[in-house]
């Protein structure tokens, strides 16, 4: 009895797609074709980059669970890299480092919250289709990102900021982004599966009208999903700035696409109401590994988009097929 329950929980944990064996098989393929892939530096950078994208994936997954879609996460992340670079450029000498770091996070999060609120407001209170509303959010975010530093890629003035992305957590050889993603992932897993807010999110995604009738404030729940997505994208953006050591309005262009793909690979259904955070996160690790392995297979990195687009179509196809069977 207990055993059965545990198996079921493990099944739920892995999501619909049983991604772990797929990932292991993929890694095995990599080990056979390009053993050079497995050096410490490359593995570390893969993990760091996937973890930073993981923040976008978390937000995207939460939005998709409410039957929405968030196309603005990439531009919010770009905006926060620009905000980070700009703050360091203009105030780097006047204020002390810790204060600047805190300011970078605070202002980026505020910006993300702002754009998320605009998205969510129009989706929930004005009934604008989510992809139109967040497409406008994308425009607003990238507009400001270009405006602040006039589109010039700007290196970060304070070099010690890099430790946020490249340093280790305490003395363990765990990159800080991975560790923080783990904390955020567990927190949101708890929020989604153990609190009423999380239950409401699934309910709204599953059947909005029914959940409205059963007394859920559906509009506020939807608004909150977009706000959370904006904030998480902003945090990811600050970390991206720390990783690339620069602020650039195109830094995260197209990353919303990776986030959606990762969520779909992870079995999050675009028709709302179901999805698992951890399998979505595993999705982004697979996707980043695929992107990196393209370079090791000596295929032009420009063609990464072709691969990711095909993977998305394939995963969507499987997801739609699976839907029909039930």
């Amino acid at each position: 009895m207990n055993n059965e329950k545990m198996i079921r929980q493990i099944r739920m944990f892995l999501g619909n797609f049983n991604l772990v064996p797929i990932y292991l098989a993929f890694l095995l393929l990599l080990a056979l074709t390009t053993p050079e892939f497995f050096n410490t530096f490359n593995l570390r950078s893969t993990v760091t980059f996937s973890s930073i994208l993981g923040f976008l994936v978390l937000g995207e997954t939460i939005v998709i669970i409410t039957k929405g879609i968030d196309l603005s996460v990439g531009s919010i992340a770009s905006l926060s890299t620009v905000i980070t670079a700009a703050l360091m450029k203009f105030y780097g000498k006047e204020l002390n480092n810790v204060l600047i770091f805190a300011l970078c996070f605070a202002i980026s999060i505020l910006a993300g919250l702002g754009i998320g609120t605009i998205n969510g407001f129009f989706v929930s209170y004005c009934k604008v289709p989510p992809f139109i509303s967040t497409l406008a959010g994308l425009l607003i975010g990238s507009g400001f990102a270009f405006f602040i530093l006039r589109g010039v890629p700007t290196p970060l003035a304070i070099s010690s900021f890099r430790t946020i992305a490249r340093g280790n957590f305490l003395i363990f050889p765990i990159p800080i982004p991975f560790f923080s993603l783990l904390i955020f992932g567990i927190t949101f897993w708890y929020l989604l599966s153990r609190t009423s807010w999380g239950k409401y999110l699934y309910a709204v995604g599953g059947n909005e009208y029914a959940s409205f009738l059963s007394g859920i404030d559906t509009k506020r729940i939807m608004l909150s999903a977009y706000q959370v997505s904006g904030v998480l994208a902003a945090i990811g953006g600050v970390m991206l700035a720390a990783l690339s050591n620069a602020g650039f309005p195109r830094a995260a262009e197209g990353y919303e696409f990776r986030a959606i793909t990762a969520a779909v690979i992870g079995g999050v259904s675009l028709s709302g109401g179901e999805g698992n955070l951890f399998s979505a996160l595993l999705g982004i690790f697979i996707l980043t590994t695929l992107g990196k392995s393209i370079i090791f297979w000596q295929i032009s990195p420009f063609m990464e988009g072709i691969f990711i687009g095909s993977v998305l179509l394939g995963a969507m196809y499987i997801s739609v097929k699976g839907k029909k069977k039930r």
């Binding site: 604008v128 507009g143 589109g151």
Partner: peptide
């Protein structure tokens, strides 16, 4: 500002649909 034009356009679309 050409960079702000994008943002304005986004807001116009949103406002119109709403």
């Amino acid at each position: 500002d050409p960079f702000i034009q994008n943002a304005i356009q986004g807001l116009i679309i949103l406002g119109y649909v709403a």
